[in-house]
């Protein structure tokens, strides 16, 4: 390509870069990777809790993105579309590792003491005692303390904004299991954040 006619990739909007990339322009695709790589990596990282796997899966997601780019019609943003790809790869990986135990509600009640146990009251005001970044870090730590099954449901619900039935479909569990996993995860998070509040006020 003539240097004088080379597109101005950094200032082009995503839609334009996608159109160029669809036509086979790898440099346009590289610019998209550069713009969104942290978000895609962060999603893989929060699901896998392992830097090496997160790197591998985020890169694999970009490879799939390139291969399937013609299917991307722009109904959502490219970042959202790519996030969906990386989450599917993470779910596949978790299934392969057999980490996602098929926990029935009963088994979870045994290990967690039943749904009926009260939810700890959490009223943390981040502007009061905690810096936002510190709270973000602590929430990340708390998410890391959940089981993979619980964390997955929280991520799909809170960050991806998926409805119960969509989560059930994606993870391959019933809606009832989605509901109970989400409740246990929230209760655990509430407990972890409550202890954070206590720790801070001492």
């Amino acid at each position: 390509m003539n240097q004088a006619l080379k597109p101005d990739y950094p200032s082009a909007p995503d839609e334009r870069l996608v159109a160029w990339a669809k036509a086979g322009d790898a440099e346009a695709f590289e610019e998209l990777v550069h713009r969104h790589r942290d978000k895609i990596y962060a999603r893989a990282m929060i699901m896998m809790r392992n830097e090496e796997e997160a790197m591998d899966l985020s890169q694999e997601a970009w490879v799939k993105g390139w291969q399937r780019l013609v299917q991307f019609q722009g109904e959502s943003s490219l970042a959202t579309w790519m996030t969906r790809i990386v989450i599917n790869l993470c779910l596949d990986q978790l299934r392969r590792h057999k980490r996602m135990r098929a926990e029935s509600i009963e088994e979870m009640q045994e290990e967690s003491g039943g749904v009926e146990r009260h939810l700890p009251v959490v009223m943390v005001n981040p502007t009061e005692r905690l810096e936002k970044e510190e709270l973000r870090r602590r929430i990340d730590d708390a998410l890391g303390k959940l089981t993979e099954a619980h964390r997955t449901v929280v991520i799909l619900h809170e960050f991806e904004g998926l409805e119960y039935k969509e989560i059930a479909k994606r993870v391959g569990i019933s809606i009832g299991t989605v509901m109970s996993r989400l409740f246990y995860a929230r209760r655990r998070l509430a407990g972890l954040l409550q202890s954070l509040k206590r720790e801070r006020s001492q």
Binding site: A42, V122, P126, R136, L189, A190
Partner: peptide, 26 residues
């Protein structure tokens, strides 16, 4: 309580940066 936990988590979504240079990652 449920609403508050959900809000806190959503508003403080963990972030991470690729621990490689742009060139190497690409």
């Amino acid at each position: 309580g449920l609403r508050e936990v959900g809000r806190l988590v959503r508003e403080h979504e963990p972030v991470a940066q690729v621990p490689e240079t742009r060139e190497f990652y690409w």
